[in-house]
Design a protein around this nucleic acid. Structure first.
Lengths: 214, 214
DNA sequence: TAGCTTATCTGTACAACGTTAAGATGGAGT
DNA sequence: ACTCCATCTTAACGTTGTACAGATAAGCTA
């Protein structure tokens, strides 16, 4: 009997799949109760193990959330990359598609996104996390480099930096404010929820995305 | 001997100024340890009272933080209003000044700002909070109304809504990302901290603030 | 001034949390 | 068959938020 099979059998002393199931439980808890509602003991309870069991897979509670954040940044980076590719050759379209992907990811995976930018909640020194986060961020930088025709390795021009920050700010701000419910009045006007925001108000907003000056 | 005077004397059974000092302690804790590091007991300790004392002034821990958030939104609204007035008659300048005020407030009062947008940390039903928050955000709406020449009471046009959300997103995103340390690479490049971001990178970013189409 | 009322604070207690230490279990490799 | 050791449990400790009963003193009424 394999380890994974043993996991479905109840009360096996050795869980067999605890690490992954702790991550899954953590994501579920954050989704249900918000980042604030997460507790390590609850995650252990859902996985059917004692409160001390997670210590054998993660340094502490913030370590487990570090793994959740890492997986979030990995998928996030891939989503941005897919958006970038959808943009083809046009620098503006590449940035526009990335912006759409950015907000779409946030609204499709609110638990992950909220955690990823909830500083202090997870261990930022978790192995691989910094690299994975940087990788995601560099997808955006790459598109800005192309838009400003910067050679690889060269520093971006001040204006290119400003543009990079402006684009990042507008999509991140929109995602953060939407998840925070600050645009609920807008959704209520159209009688819808997240879908309305994504399909109706995001395009309305992103059409004001600044154009790269070169 | 007045109540306030009694407060400085040590170990008076009745504190005399507990409510305000709990708020001050809470802000100090958040500033030092981040929103995550706040505990009610620590606030009580700093005010020199027992852990049960705050209950007579606030329903619970989230109630105290609700008061902190309320005071934050009050000052925030006033800062935005001052910016709006600095903008004079020019709609774009009004919005630009408000944007500057928005980010400046966030960087000058990081503890308050982080708390204000930390959903789940404070009691959103705290008396007066919703009204104070709405009031602050209506300062921005008012300027957009002027820019789009909307009559008071009328609904904004879809494009005006989109513009409102875009402007709000870009300044909020910039503030949130800066406080989260996401622009540290930029500050490091210029060898500075928050001041560098405020004085150098904010103008560079806000110059991409979209213009109202009418 | 004396007595009563009430707001404010203390002391104690409890459940839940994160984390650690010591011991139990059983799969994997020799 | 035997040993090793990763994995899990049980038990315990200190900290947290909060409830409850009682202590204190400030303010009001007479």
């Amino acid at each position: 009997m394999s380890r994974a099979k043993a996991a479905v059998k109840k009360r096996a002393y050795h869980h067999g799949d605890l690490r992954d199931q702790l991550v899954a439980a953590a994501e579920a808890i954050i989704l249900e109760r918000g980042v604030e509602g997460f507790t390590l003991r609850e995650a252990a309870r859902r996985a059917g193990v004692s409160p001390a069991a997670p210590a054998h897979h993660f340094k502490d509670a913030k370590g487990l959330l570090g793994e959740v954040a890492l997986r979030g940044f990995r998928d996030f980076g891939e989503a941005l990359d897919a958006g970038d590719r959808r943009g083809g050759d046009d620098p503006y379209r590449r940035l526009m598609e990335q912006g759409n992907a950015y907000v779409n990811f946030a609204l499709k995976h609110p638990a992950r996104f909220q955690l990823m930018f909830a500083h202090g909640k997870y261990d930022i020194t978790y192995p691989g996390l910094a690299e994975t986060g940087d990788k995601a961020f560099r997808v955006l930088e790459r598109a800005v480099r192309a838009a400003y025709a910067a050679n690889p390795g060269d520093d971006l021009s001040p204006d290119a930096y400003g543009y990079l920050m402006a684009v990042w700010s507008i999509v991140h701000g929109f995602a953060h404010l939407t998840l925070g419910g600050e645009f609920d009045w807008a959704a209520r006007q159209r009688g819808g929820g997240k879908d309305t925001i994504l399909k109706h108000f995001l395009p309305l907003t992103l059409k004001h995305l600044p154009l790269p000056s070169r």
